[in-house]
Nucleic acid binder design. Sequence first.
DNA 1: TATCAGTGTTTAATTATTTCAACAAGACCT
DNA 2: AGGTCTTGTTGAAATAATTAAACACTGATA
Lengths: 192, 192
Amino acid sequence: MLNDIKSQRSVGPDIGSRLRAIREQRGLSQRELARRAGVTNATISLIEKNKSSPSVSSLKKVLDGIPMTLAEFFALELPPEEQIFFRAGELPEFTEEGVSFRQLGGDQSRQKLQILRERYAPGADTGETMLSHESEEGGVVLSGRIEVTVGDQQRVLGAGDGYYFDSRIPHRFRNVGDEPCEIISACAPPYL
Amino acid sequence: MLNDIKSQRSVGPDIGSRLRAIREQRGLSQRELARRAGVTNATISLIEKNKSSPSVSSLKKVLDGIPMTLAEFFALELPPEEQIFFRAGELPEFTEEGVSFRQLGGDQSRQKLQILRERYAPGADTGETMLSHESEEGGVVLSGRIEVTVGDQQRVLGAGDGYYFDSRIPHRFRNVGDEPCEIISACAPPYL
DNA sequence: TATCAGTGTTTAATTATTTCAACAAGACCT
DNA sequence: AGGTCTTGTTGAAATAATTAAACACTGATA
């Protein structure tokens, strides 16, 4: 390599910008992060400028100083949005306090399976009293961001992320973003 | 480094085992993967035996030959107990003749509900012999176009369209477009 | 048996990364 | 102004990763 790793063959993902963004977001200087990570500040500088592609073990040391796992770090490169085109559906729609449901298959009372296309307006919430029913349910987030609480676990899911749990565990959905969140979910047996 | 990266300071996560497991699962030899990735077989061997910690750019090259993203690779951390949340790249994937399935919720044999993200390559087909099983199933098309045959009914669905039927009725899915088709589907009880 | 094609491993040479140390620019204080 | 912090960057030396080529092993075939 001469000077810039990109001068060769545009090799390597843009690790540098991501690391810099994360570091700056946490208010750490290159030297401070280097100290916590047990590397030199030069290493941080070179990585951030994409002048070297760190070994996995080096990158792990750096991330330990943040701290952040390798999985979390690389998860940030996931597709920004799902490319989905919707045409006007024939699905019946039920709206209630910022949450709209459109359901596949007309009569849910005679079905084993309930499939919904859910839309949460910004700030919409299934409510402070947690939901709980005799089912199992799961879903995939299409767009937006939603905070899912299941028992004592809580995470914010984005496009492409999913969930699956026993519906008897108290749960709650809340759109914590500033844009609507769309989910395709399934529940068996149906929850009315 | 002297001989073994672990002789130094037990540095680095166990990248080697993970890479080896993935490679063997796909039925690739070290040399074949090396050829696809544009590296030498020695590199693969050393990485798998944790005798070298690959640079991120090298690891990316290797994963491109599988193919798999860095995020997916590092997201492959085994569920400690019951897994509720799934990151986008984290879902286990099964591919067969142009159709790939990624499933929410690890163990389908103990679940009431099976939720899949399905991807049909252009021309992919569930087969001339119609499917039939004791379930009910439905889904929503995210992108692409797919011809769905259920009993004596047949339709081509596009993005946003959906379906729901009794799985005992013989059915078949076929990508009649020239681009991949993605579907989120659900089935209860699971069809193995 | 001999041979061929495949596998994974190992060593020396090459190439890349990391360190050590110095440098330049900016902010802040006296 | 001059100090004195801090910041991020860069060059030469030290260290680690990658390659190229050979090795040893397995199973299939003639």
